[in-house]
Write a protein that binds this DNA or RNA. Sequence first.
DNA 1: AAAAAAATCAAACGTTTGTTCCTAAAATTT
DNA 2: AAATTTTAGGAACAAACGTTTGATTTTTTT
Lengths: 194, 194
Amino acid sequence: MRALTGKIDEVFEFVQKYIKENGYAPSVREICRGCEIKSTATVFTYLNELADRGLINKANLKNRAVSLKQNVTTVPLVGIVAAGQPIFATENYEDFYSLPSNFFSGEDLYMLNVHGDSMIKIGMYEGDKIIVKKQETADNGDIVVALVDDSATVKRFFKRDGKVILHPENDEMADFVFDNVKIIGKVIGLIRNI
Amino acid sequence: MRALTGKIDEVFEFVQKYIKENGYAPSVREICRGCEIKSTATVFTYLNELADRGLINKANLKNRAVSLKQNVTTVPLVGIVAAGQPIFATENYEDFYSLPSNFFSGEDLYMLNVHGDSMIKIGMYEGDKIIVKKQETADNGDIVVALVDDSATVKRFFKRDGKVILHPENDEMADFVFDNVKIIGKVIGLIRNI
DNA sequence: AAAAAAATCAAACGTTTGTTCCTAAAATTT
DNA sequence: AAATTTTAGGAACAAACGTTTGATTTTTTT
């Protein structure tokens, strides 16, 4: 039976703090010193228990191979696409942003700069960056990124009577109607610098 | 004279990838294997050079003590404030978000949930989270967080004829005019989950 | 082609490290 | 109070590690 003494929590906090300050994990002996524990075996046991509880990651037989659970997803900002080029080529990655994974989760995310004011009614402004989940299908009402004439456009998606409607959220703009359209993602978020 | 062979860049990329995948840094020998370098001394030299160039952090005499330059700032989401309570008490921290520091930089940031539609004209919607820089003064035109009747409100700030005007960005709402108002921050960004 | 400089390597040294095994103390249960 | 379980410590081992030194190969310059 495992008790929840304050000691193991102290170790957990020490590890968190150490990693945050140094960028790499403490050794078992450094934890000993930091938490006033006299035996490396004790710390060793604690680390394994913290790993069992899922609070940290720990590799066996490797030095300082302890890490915290990741809370960021790294997402590329995909730049303007040259005609005919594949969108997700590494050359189109302008930068990388680390987003909070407790806010934006999922695989295959990317970011795009917002251009124009076609989605202004739902608060997407020129210069905003949208977070997009890579997918080639969409449900009615989704906000999607579509590839029209080799350039990426953001609109609300509807499918009606076999036609695809790309609806701008801007009262001064009319719907675009297509027989077919290549969807390259669904917008799941937005980030803005004021 | 230091040359820029492809080898050292390969080492840098390997380290980045390794850390991203494992959460802790590779050892010198793991880099040897990963980059097909036969001598640990070579890798050792490269790591020191990468550190000199400022691309990585490296501690001496410690195992796996290599880390990447931080690219996240951890920011607390400050919750609803009970009357009379200090705003920035730890008890009011509902959660922590890791924001990309290449997008939101600076000290003393916090986040707030957006309530109401008083700033709808500049694209701040109910449920959005705003990123705020802690400060007690503001310039004309800034979007600020002010403390009115013990609750935090977001408005555009103007000072005119000795009065403070808090201006909602919503055509249906009138300005609020005060003799004095406690400013607790300036809005520098926004993040939305759709 | 020779000389100089830079890059890479091989081998070894002394630490630091994770881990194990067993003992000792403290807390809990009987 | 004795027995049992839990928690912590001591000591040691073998492996992995960062680092140093000096030689060797490759590249560049003369």
